[in-house]
């Protein structure tokens, strides 16, 4: 049983040191992200008080609203508030709804998380075998067709595909609801699943197409490696040699893309949720941007950024698990 060599405590200690440093980086990035999100929103045009009041209000009304919203206070004080809140897990309150931002976000998660995660898992499950097949059969008809389909999937705009599916499946065939989400949420599991099928399908097509290309090129790379030739010279068939040596070696670049994909599927929900009228994080973000509800925008964007950074950390850890050579390095 020769698994990878786990040569003792010094190695795992080095790994721990690396992990701590990496987490330190993550925290630093979060601080930068929090500041950037805050500053960007103040720099961008649009005043929530104006939005709230509409055109034609008096300066007195305007000042009062600004005081009420807290947007009249010095930038530094607002920044300190925002930061202090973050440390205690308080993202502030929405300007208009007066409900905690965190609650608004967690309310939306039961829609967005299942959507993003199942699309992610489905893309991976589809793309890995298809990508490998496209690489192995690259000279045959099958490989050309698969690559072509992937190319098409990348070229199609997500919203257009979504609309097409709605028209076909929901409007013409009346198989699934065209959009929306059960008012009672997951307490109506059948309804919830039904309303997520089309969005997940749409997102999966878009993401799997992209992933197929990466899996294909990672597999091609492995196919051209000397060690694969060595394996074949020892009597392994091409599929067995690929299984034995390709899986792990090909995984490294693919895991990187998976990380990017997971992060982008979270951001991709903005478009998908609008197309399918789903009350998720994406629509929350969109509506609060339109309303200039700064705390909500701020909180949502920060949370998405934090997720992306965290996914990056996970990717790095997985990379080191896959490739022990990385562990020698600091």
């Amino acid at each position: 049983m020769w698994r990878r060599s786990a040569s003792g405590a010094d190695r795992s200690r080095a790994g721990l040191g690396w992990l701590l440093r990496r987490i330190g980086w993550l925290l630093g990035s979060l601080v930068v992200a929090a500041s950037a999100v805050f500053l960007l929103l103040r720099v961008l045009p649009g005043d929530p008080a104006v939005t709230l009041l509409g055109i034609g209000s008096s300066p007195e009304q305007y000042d009062a609203v600004r005081r009420q919203l807290g947007t009249d206070r010095p930038l530094l004080a607002q920044y300190v508030d925002w930061f202090g809140g973050l440390l205690t897990g308080d993202l502030g309150e929405g300007l208009f709804t007066r409900t905690p931002v965190l609650d608004q976000i967690t309310e939306r998660l039961p829609v967005t998380l299942p959507l993003a995660l199942s699309a992610f898992v489905a893309s991976a499950l589809v793309a890995v075998p298809v990508g490998v097949l496209a690489a192995v059969r690259r000279r045959g008809l099958l490989g050309v067709v698969l690559s072509g389909l992937a190319q098409l999937g990348i070229a199609l705009p997500v919203f257009w595909l979504g609309i097409l599916l709605v028209w076909l499946v929901a409007v013409r065939w009346r198989l699934l609801p065209p959009g929306g989400f059960p008012r009672v949420g997951w307490r109506d599991p059948g309804g919830a699943v039904e309303s997520l099928v089309l969005p997940v399908l749409t997102l999966t097509v878009a993401q799997a197409s992209l992933l197929i290309r990466y899996v294909r090129s990672a597999t091609l790379d492995v196919l051209h490696q000397d060690y694969l030739r060595t394996a074949r010279s020892l009597g392994y068939s091409l599929p067995r040699a690929l299984w034995r040596h390709g899986l792990r070696n090909g995984a490294a670049p693919v895991v990187n893309v998976l990380g990017v994909l997971l992060a982008s599927s979270l951001l991709g929900t903005v478009v998908i949720e609008s197309v399918f009228a789903l009350p998720g994080l994406g629509t929350l973000l969109l509506s609060s941007v339109q309303a200039r509800d700064l705390p909500v925008v701020q909180g949502t964007v920060f949370l998405m950024t934090a997720t992306v950074l965290l996914v990056g950390l996970v990717v790095d850890v997985v990379q080191r698990l896959i490739d022990p050579r990385l562990r020698g390095r600091a």
């Binding site: 060599s5 490696q225 000397d226 060690y227 896959i322």
Partner: peptide, 14 residues
Amino acid sequence: VFQEPLTALDPLMP
């Protein structure tokens, strides 16, 4: 036995 001992072995397998 091939030329390049650096690449002829699977780098991720003992």
